[in-house]
């Protein structure tokens, strides 16, 4: 088993969003993303949209994208399961080029989880829907987020980024 020592900072993720011209963040907060939320909230150029269920995020993002916005979706993997029909219809069906950053709750790197843990279902669901994904576990993986934006734009499909580490405290303050 590989020991994970590096961590993922919220500022790194935020930097990737800014680099890729994100205008709107459609999100349902979770424990994995709270530090990132605080960073984004301080940016007046980013519009944060709070949805009540994750399925809302794909239809909202579809409308934003059709209108020329560049949304990103920020949800937890539990919310991915909730969103499947919306992802299918509004994400894939409307050819919405959106990156979906998914907190990978339950990700242990060694695959040992209780049978009903949401981590067991996350990647099989993405495979079933034909959604390509990148795993990001630490700051060194962050360029994969830009790859996801490029792929979403090229393929006109949702592309997922699985965040396999809880965001830690701020590194630069």
């Amino acid at each position: 088993m590989t020991q994970q020592t590096a961590s993922l900072s919220p500022e790194t993720i935020y930097g990737e969003l800014k680099k890729n011209g994100v205008t709107h963040v459609v999100m349902l907060p979770d424990s994995e993303t709270n530090f990132l939320y605080l960073v984004m909230q301080a940016d007046p150029e980013l519009t944060l949209l709070h949805v009540a269920r994750e399925g809302q995020s794909f239809s909202t993002a579809a409308g934003l994208a059709v209108g020329g916005g560049r949304p990103v979706i920020l949800i937890q993997n539990t919310g991915l399961l909730e969103s499947c029909d919306s992802l299918r219809g509004w994400g894939i069906g409307l050819k919405t080029p959106v990156v979906v950053i998914i907190g990978y709750r339950g990700w242990t790197r060694h695959g040992v989880n209780p049978p009903t843990d949401v981590a067991n279902f996350t990647e099989p669901i993405l495979h079933a829907l034909g959604i390509h994904y990148f795993l990001v576990e630490n700051d060194a993986d962050a360029p994969r987020i830009s790859l996801a934006f490029q792929e979403a734009a090229q393929t006109r499909r949702p592309v997922a980024v699985l965040v396999g580490d809880e965001y830690h405290g701020f590194v630069n303050r």
């Binding site: 205008t23 709107h24 459609v26 519009t47 949209l49 949805v51 399925g55 809302q56 794909f58 239809s59 909202t60 993002a61 579809a62 409308g63 934003l64 994208a65 059709v66 209108g67 020329g68 916005g69 949304p71 029909d85 919306s86 299918r88 219809g89 509004w90 069906g93 409307l94």
Partner: peptide, 23 residues
């Protein structure tokens, strides 16, 4: 006009909202 049919039930309001924000 944007006659979408029924991409996935329950999403029209959010779609229209997103479009309104973008435009």
């Amino acid at each position: 006009d944007i006659p979408l049919g029924d991409p996935a039930m329950g999403g029209h309001a959010s779609f229209a909202f997103g479009l309104a924000l973008a435009q």
